[in-house]
Design a binder for these strands. Sequence first.
DNA 1: CGTTTTCTTGACAGGGATCAACACTAGTGG
DNA 2: CCACTAGTGTTGATCCCTGTCAAGAAAACG
Lengths: 254, 254
Amino acid sequence: MNAFVNKLCRGAPLTEADKTVLLDLTRSVRRAEKGRDIAVPGDSSRSLPVILRGWACRYQVLANGKRQIVMLYLPGDMCEPFGLLPHFIDDNIAALTPVSFSTLSQDVLRTWVERSPTCKQALWWDLLVATNIERAQIVSLGRRSAAERLGHLFCEIELRLRMAGIPTESGCDMPLTQVELADLLGLTPVHVNRSLQDLRKAGLISLENRRLIIREHQELRDLSDFDPCYLHVNYAQTSPEGWPHSLSETIDDA
Amino acid sequence: MNAFVNKLCRGAPLTEADKTVLLDLTRSVRRAEKGRDIAVPGDSSRSLPVILRGWACRYQVLANGKRQIVMLYLPGDMCEPFGLLPHFIDDNIAALTPVSFSTLSQDVLRTWVERSPTCKQALWWDLLVATNIERAQIVSLGRRSAAERLGHLFCEIELRLRMAGIPTESGCDMPLTQVELADLLGLTPVHVNRSLQDLRKAGLISLENRRLIIREHQELRDLSDFDPCYLHVNYAQTSPEGWPHSLSETIDDA
DNA sequence: CGTTTTCTTGACAGGGATCAACACTAGTGG
DNA sequence: CCACTAGTGTTGATCCCTGTCAAGAAAACG
């Protein structure tokens, strides 16, 4: 059981056969050091990078040198939406920490998906969630203040980590530097620093030694207008199709 | 031939049968007045709204009343990515002008797609482009100034309209009010007004009576760091798979 | 340990927000 | 045909959130 399979279980009641196939597909693991590229513009999308351990991101660099992180990839995340037609990757994908990842064979995966409706549902669900995350990012950048953006991000990260099977009750890793947070949230490192201090002073979070603890969940959610619906955490139990309920563990407070 | 089919021709060399089926699917047309919702949160995604005439958008409203437009839908655009698993729509989709639209049957479309690889490619391409547009939006909101955001948006709109078969040589319709532009670009109406004037004074655009003319294409692109690659305008001719080249008209300067 | 990265703090500037009028347009109804 | 109204565009004055510049601390690292 790895983060990838753990996460997909949230989207559909995977069969044992599904899990076996998916685990097999992620058997061979590659590594990337912090800061290294996992994919660069022009790469073929025939093989899909999947993060197993560590954090990565997709980013673009403007002509004036400014950088914007478009998407954060946590353990279990696929860096390209499943099944997407062959194309060339447009953005950079880089490791933010030391990363273990597999590159799924798009062809093998697609073949299996044709046989397994549950697996298909899980992968579509993953795409749906990824899309929603990017849309939430648009809303944050467009209409939230610096502190609100930080709060929203922290709420999202905590929930996403739990979806990948990483416990967060006693806090979670937050390996991003303030420069990286700034590139992700469309801010300046200096301002990230000050906004973080505001959140700390308000007693909402504590963040030191790359470790994040959310002290006041509800208050932080209220402040940052965080509504976890968009992550569809328990889709496997609540999908419109009425799939059988077979998951033992759920993420209740979402 | 409508905007929908016109647009999909950019993504794959559709056969005559493809076009017939797609035209048939969009035969029955519904209308929505300006400002009316086409879909609201909770709607089922079993039927996919496709814009045939007019402009629409997907938006979210925060608890504090602020609105952010997440995506602009122009003629030919599908408001939900094709084939996405059944789910409930999370955002509002509203008409920005009087709109003519069809609601494709997801089931019928999927059945046809299983038979037609070209149609499948076209729909995947559409999803790819839609995703790229949202990512470009993230970059704009995060790292571009007000005037740059406006410039980038105008460049994008002009090209997207041409992809849908709407000529833009002598300018194009720009029905958005300054309030709507503000909600789309994460700005204030007042600031949109002033930034527009800057662009006009610089001789880059003219915008009056809901009609936009880009006076200096290259300069506007340079200013706003607009690189049309992400729209994959001529994907049908350049896809990695090496599909046959069969389109007669291309959009050269992209 | 020295070196580099990251974090923190201060002073200051500026892009964009806010508030408030006023003009212009377009639709509406008498 | 003309008031009336509501939405839209324009402008000015002012504020403040965030960016910029710069320089120390602190932590990470080899």
